[in-house]
Simulated assay, not measured.
Amino acid sequence: MKLTRIGATLAMTAVAALTLAACATNETPATGGEGQTAGDLTGTLAGSGASSQGTAQTTWIAGFQALQPGIQINYAGGGSGAGRTDFQNGTSQFIGSDRAFKKDEIEAGGFSGCADGSDLVEIPAYISPIAIAFNVEGVDKLTLDPATLAGIFAGTITTWNDPAIAATNEGVTLPDLAINPVHRSDKSGTTGNFTEYLDAAAPDVWTYGSVEEWPIQGGEAAQETPGVQNAIKTGNGTIGYLDNSAAGDFTIASLKVGDKVVELSPDAASAVVDASTIEEGRAPTDLVYDLNRTEEGVYPVVLVSYLIGCAEYADPAVGANVKAYFEYVVSADGQNAAAETAHSAPLSADLQKKAAEAAGAIK
């Protein structure tokens, strides 16, 4: 199916305009966090991490600074792995990450910006479908089942007119053309979520597990999201995976889940989280979900990207600012703003309540 959305340039221009307006005035009678009236807080926050959150973070920062112009927030991106390292060494006071910290990583400690013995706050603040984008001349509609998608990226299905692809695309003229599967060359949370789906839905075909670094040779390696975009766009016969916010006007495949064909949509993506459970053995503020990627009717290739901070900061002033920012991000205003610019899925009412409670516990 063909998806048309607001161009990235226009979105960024609109956000830039909002940022300038936020610096010039503070007429919004909302609060920047529990117990904080607009304009009460001051300071600087450094964030980094998931590039998938880039557009959403720009939007959130602009909206938050309209409420709290005394706080300057910088989000450097750099990738999820780099963000987790930044948070552990105290370079970043909060991060975005396309995977949460593992329980053994938390138990090992070493989070220098947190108070001794502090739990972590990990909130699934950015939920986005991972688009399976393709560029095949003459083909503008495609449906793939799990085994076929896994075979394409495992390198066992190599031409577009393969019978496995034809079986789910009746009436579509598929060319005798080599498939060029595009994957990330860098360590990536998007890769981790994509391979987690392949591992869950087609383990007999995808035998490499859930990994953040591409595990096999073949196909085309591309650096970060812009590299994947370029590789898909400039090739014929290409197919790749990328965050929905970066899918632009690419043609997107639908996926077969059970007996149903599911098209990419934010609502179908958020349904995955609602069908899943929080991992056992984590602190009450550590909302890490064990995703159910095979539930019929949901869009299963979804990125759940976390907003991560300390439950208690070594510097209480930093804690107050992070708390206010996190509360804004998970609010209806914050989630709806990100949905407009980044095409993410707003948190469901139940998840929003849990996320607000976790953010409100920061000190």
Results as ranks from 00 to 15, higher is better:
Asp274His: 09
Ala345Ile: 04
Pro203Val: 12
Ala338Asp: 04
His343Val: 06
Phe87Asn: 01
Glu27Asp: 11
Ile61Pro: 02
Gly39His: 08
Thr285His: 11
Ala46Val: 15
Ala201Cys: 10
Tyr299Arg: 02
Val15Asn: 07
Pro316Asn: 13
Val15Glu: 00
Tyr313Phe: 15
Pro69Leu: 08
Asn230Glu: 05
Gly240Tyr: 03
Pro181Ile: 06
Thr37Phe: 07
Leu149Arg: 04
Leu144Pro: 02
Ala62Glu: 01
Gly334His: 02
Pro203Arg: 10
Ser210Pro: 07
Val261His: 05
Ala283Tyr: 07
Arg5Ile: 00
Ala50Tyr: 00
Asp162Ala: 14
Gly171Cys: 10
Asn292Trp: 06
Ala16Ile: 03
Ala8Trp: 01
Phe101Lys: 01
Pro226Thr: 14
Gly110Arg: 12
Gly219Ser: 11
Asp116Ala: 14
Ala66His: 08
Thr143Ala: 14
Leu255Gly: 02
Ala46Glu: 14
Arg5Ala: 04
Asp333Gln: 13
Glu224Thr: 14
Ile127Tyr: 09
Leu255Asp: 03
Thr13Met: 13
Asn230Met: 04
Ile61Arg: 03
Asp350Cys: 09
Ala358Glu: 02
Thr158Ala: 10
Gly237Ser: 11
Ala154Thr: 03
Phe64Glu: 00
Thr251Ile: 12
Ile6Met: 13
Tyr325Pro: 08
Lys363His: 13
Val205Met: 04
Pro129His: 00
Pro316Ile: 13
Thr225Val: 15
Asp286Tyr: 03
Asn180Trp: 01
Gln65His: 14
Val262Met: 05
Gln88Asn: 11
Ala131Met: 00
Thr225Arg: 03
Tyr75Lys: 06
Ala166Trp: 02
Gly79Ser: 05
Leu20Ala: 15
Gln72Thr: 15
Ser265Tyr: 05
Gly109Pro: 08
Thr159His: 08
Asp249Pro: 00
Gly77Glu: 07
Gly189Met: 03
Ala100Arg: 03
Gly43Arg: 01
Thr168Gln: 10
Asp40Cys: 03
Glu107Leu: 12
Lys102Val: 11
Lys102Pro: 00
Gln223Pro: 09
Trp206His: 08
Ile106Asn: 04
Ser118Val: 00
Gly219Glu: 04
Val329Asp: 03
Pro203Ser: 12
Leu198Ile: 11
Thr91His: 12
Gln88Cys: 09
Pro266Ser: 06
Leu177Met: 12
Ile179Lys: 01
Ser210Ile: 07
Ala50Asp: 11
Gly39Ala: 11
Asn180Ser: 13
Gly117Pro: 11
Trp60Ile: 04
Thr13Arg: 14
Glu196Val: 02
Ala201Ile: 07
Gly297Ala: 06
Ile152Gln: 05
Asp86Leu: 10
Tyr306Ser: 07
Thr28Asp: 13
Gln65Glu: 15
Asn89Gln: 14
Asp204Ser: 13
Gly360Met: 09
Ala22Leu: 07
Val15Gly: 01
Thr207Glu: 14
Asp199Arg: 12
Gly248Asp: 15
Tyr299Asp: 01
Ala22Lys: 02
Glu263Tyr: 04
Gly209Met: 12
Ala314Tyr: 07
Ser348His: 07
Ile106Arg: 06
Ala38Val: 10
Glu170Tyr: 09
Gln223Ile: 14
Ile308Arg: 01
Ser128Cys: 11
Ala50Phe: 04
Glu340Leu: 13
Glu357Ala: 15
Asp290Trp: 08
Thr190Cys: 10
Ala332Gly: 06
Val288Gly: 02
Trp60Glu: 05
